[in-house]
C-alpha cells in the first residue's frame, strides 16, 4: 500500500547496522509520544489559552514571551492549538489503525489458515486494493463517506487494510509451515487449538510492530487529508488544517506552518522509532 509497507517487518535478519543510530534516541522517542499522548488526554493542563477563540488584539504575533510559538490571524495561540490538535491526530490514527488491523487481521488469518479458494479470493482482493494508490483510495472513500474527522480516519484505515492483511497472511503461512506447528498437529492438536496456541501468537507479534509503524503513517495521512480540507472543518485545531490555514500568511508569519510541521514530524518519527525497536525486540 505504501512504500513503508515494503520496509517492514522482516524475520530473522542480522542486526541492521542502520538502526543502531536510532537506539539512543529511543528514550527520546518514548518521551515525545508520552508528551503528545498527555496533550491529547489533558490538553487544558498544558495551556491556559483557548484553542478556538482568539484575542484579535494578539493576531499574528511572532513567537515570544506571551505566545511561545506565536499566534495566528485570529489571535489564537499556536501552541494551544497544537496541544488541542493532538487529540484529533491521535484519535484519528487510533481509529485508522484499529480499522486496518481488525479487518486486515480477519482477512489475513482467514486466507492464511483456511487456504483453498478462500485464500485465492482474499489475495486477489488484496491485489485490487494494492493497485489503487493509497491517497486516491482514501479520496474515493471520502467522496462516498463525506468530509469529517471520523470519515477521514476510516478512509485512512481502509487503505491500511490490504497491507495488514497481506502481512498477516504471509506470517500465518510461514508459521503454519514451521516444524513446531507440524509438531503440534503431530502430538494430537486440533486445528483451532493449534491456530490459537501457536499460529496466532507467533504471527501477531510482528503485526504489532507493523501496527506501530502504521500508526505514524496514519498520522501523516490524516494530516495530509486535513491539509487538503477534507477533515475536521475550521476552527477545529487540527495539525494539517493549521498548516493549510497558515499558508495564507507564509510570506510574513513563518511560525504558522513551521511549528505544526515540526510537531507532525516529531510524532511520526517517534512512532517509527518505537515501531522499529519493537520489531527488533520481537525477533
Amino acid at each position: 500500500m505504501t512504500l513503508q509497507d515494503t520496509l517492514l517487518p522482516r524475520r530473522s535478519r542480522t542486526l541492521p547496522r542502520l538502526h543502531v543510530a536510532i537506539r539512543p534516541g529511543l528514550a527520546l522517542a518514548v518521551a515525545v509520544l508520552a508528551v503528545v499522548t498527555l496533550w491529547a488526554m489533558l490538553p487544558s493542563a498544558f495551556t491556559s489559552f483557548n484553542p478556538v477563540a482568539g484575542l484579535p488584539a494578539d493576531k499574528l504575533q511572532a513567537p515570544g514571551a506571551a505566545h511561545w510559538l506565536g499566534s495566528d490571524e485570529l489571535g489564537r495561540d499556536v501552541l494551544a492549538r497544537l496541544i488541542f490538535g493532538a487529540r484529533q491526530s491521535l484519535a484519528g490514527a487510533v481509529v485508522a489503525v484499529a480499522v486496518g488491523l481488525s479487518v486486515g487481521s480477519l482477512l489475513g488469518v482467514l486466507a492464511g489458515s483456511v487456504g483453498g479458494w478462500v485464500e485465492q479470493a482474499i489475495l486477489r482482493l488484496i491485489d485490487v486494493l494494492l493497485s489503487i494508490p493509497a491517497l486516491l483510495l482514501s479520496l474515493a472513500l471520502i467522496v462516498i463517506l463525506g468530509f469529517g474527522t471520523v470519515q477521514v480516519a476510516v478512509a485512512v484505515g481502509v487503505t491500511a487494510v490490504a497491507g495488514f492483511a497481506r502481512l498477516i497472511w504471509a506470517e500465518v503461512v510461514t508459521v503454519r509451515r514451521s516444524d513446531y506447528v507440524e509438531a503440534a498437529f503431530g502430538s494430537g492438536g486440533r486445528f483451532f487449538a493449534v491456530l490459537w496456541r501457536h499460529v496466532l501468537p507467533n504471527a501477531l507479534t510482528s503485526v504489532l510492530a507493523y501496527a506501530a509503524i502504521q500508526f505514524g503513517w496514519a498520522i501523516l495521512q490524516i494530516s495530509t487529508l486535513g491539509f487538503l480540507g477534507y477533515g475536521a472543518p475550521p476552527p477545529t485545531p487540527e495539525w494539517g488544517l493549521m498548516i493549510a490555514e497558515g499558508r495564507n500568511y507564509m510570506t510574513t508569519s513563518w511560525w504558522l506552518t513551521l511549528f505544526p510541521g515540526l510537531v507532525v514530524i516529531a510524532t511520526v518519527l517517534a512512532t517509527n522509532a518505537v515501531g522499529h525497536a519493537l520489531t527488533r525486540r520481537l525477533q
Binding site: S178, D179, Y180, G186, S187, H198, N202, T205
Partner: peptide, 16 residues
C-alpha cells in the same frame, strides 16, 4: 507414533 525433528531450533514454539 511420535516424531522428533532434525532441527531443534525450528520444532519448538519460540513463545512457549
Amino acid at each position: 507414533i511420535q516424531l522428533v525433528y532434525q532441527n531443534p531450533w525450528g520444532s519448538l514454539d519460540p513463545r512457549q
